[in-house]
């Protein structure tokens, strides 16, 4: 079997931003001293006159982005998820969300796959924080190709968008030219016994799990739920109707993320049993990214275990 190409979703972000910049002069980028890490350094290099480093001052950066957007520009403001969604939450809520300004937040280094930096930098709360803001769109692409397409879709969407990217290089499985639709889940594999709805780097793990489960006689539907908000209600309900059981997988706390978003839809419209795979309301720790993902149950193996148990096998 050929080696799978691996790229971090943040690389897709950087690449797409440069392409958007070539096409649209209203695209500007802001950073808080992490342009190299967030990959917006690529944009800075290509268009130095419309990249604004704000220094280590994320709250200020979000409001500067709001001011830029109020004049008709389309700013992409970047930092690590911890400092974008975490530190600058109230600035995003009041200066971007409330006035519905056209700011795109490019948050990289989401989740525990940040790795060695440890818990202080492993943001597993950003979906929860951003979901609480009315009108905020939340996208967490599964690979670099989807990330590129998502960034372009975010540009075309009028209003605030929170884009969550990862630091870790992960397998690329979308075809070049993939078209992203905000609010639409992607069925990666059809199935009837259980639906596994995943987001971010867990989509690839879920697909791998789906193959192993099939060998065990469990026919799992696998969904890439890259838009966490607005959630694809129709797909959640049709998967529940068809499979009767749903597993959710996210590199995020089980509190306030994709799992709870899916549960909210189901509990009101079609009560269905759900198992949530995520970071179990604990802080992360230092370690190599892949070892951490395994240790915290964010792997194909654990998805197989949980799903097998869920299906009574």
């Amino acid at each position: 079997m050929a080696e799978v190409k691996k790229l971090a979703t943040r690389d897709g972000y950087g690449k797409a931003l440069v392409e958007l910049g070539a096409q649209y002069p209203d695209v500007v980028a802001l950073d808080a001293d992490l342009a190299g890490s967030t990959k917006t350094g690529m944009f800075q290099k290509a268009y130095p006159d419309r990249h604004f480093n704000c220094g280590i001052a994320e709250g200020n950066m979000m409001c500067v982005a709001a001011g830029l957007a109020s004049t008709g520009l389309v700013p992409f403001a970047s930092s690590f998820a911890m400092f974008a969604a975490g530190r600058a939450f109230e600035q995003i809520r009041n200066s971007i969300g409330y006035p519905a300004l056209n700011v795109k937040i490019g948050a990289t280094h989401g989740g525990i796959s940040v790795g060695e930096d440890g818990a202080s930098h492993q943001c597993c709360e950003d979906f929860a924080l951003m979901r609480s803001i009315p009108g905020m769109v939340i996208i967490c692409p599964a690979d670099a190709v989807e990330a590129e397409a998502a960034v372009k879709a975010a540009y075309l969407h009028k209003g605030p968008v929170y884009l969550r990217f990862g630091r870790l290089a992960v397998p690329v499985f979308h075809e070049e030219g993939f078209e992203f639709k905000i609010g639409k889940g992607e069925v990666m594999r059809d199935g009837t016994d259980v639906a596994i709805s995943a987001t971010g780097l867990l989509v690839y793990e879920a697909v791998q799990a789906g193959e192993k489960l099939a060998e065990m006689g469990i026919n799992a539907m696998i969904i890439n739920m890259s838009t966490v908000k607005p959630i694809d209600e129709e797909l959640v309900l049709s998967a529940a109707r068809k499979c009767g059981r749903i597993v959710t997988c996210e590199e995020h706390s089980i509190v306030g993320g994709l799992g709870e978003a899916v549960c909210a839809v189901l509990s009101e419209k079609l009560p269905t049993h759900v198992r949530r795979i995520g970071v179990n309301d604990v802080f992360g720790e230092s370690g190599p990214a892949n070892a951490l993902l395994k240790a915290y149950g964010l792997s194909a193996e654990n998805i197989v275990e949980v799903t097998k148990d869920f299906c009574g096998k």
Partner: peptide, 25 residues
């Protein structure tokens, strides 16, 4: 009204963003 405000400390940042936009454009 050019900017929604109320949470102290944020309006000046937005104003700086508008001024930055004026310079860029």
């Amino acid at each position: 009204v050019d900017m929604s405000t109320g949470s102290l400390g944020q309006g000046i940042s937005a104003a700086a963003g508008m001024a930055l936009a004026g310079k860029y454009q």
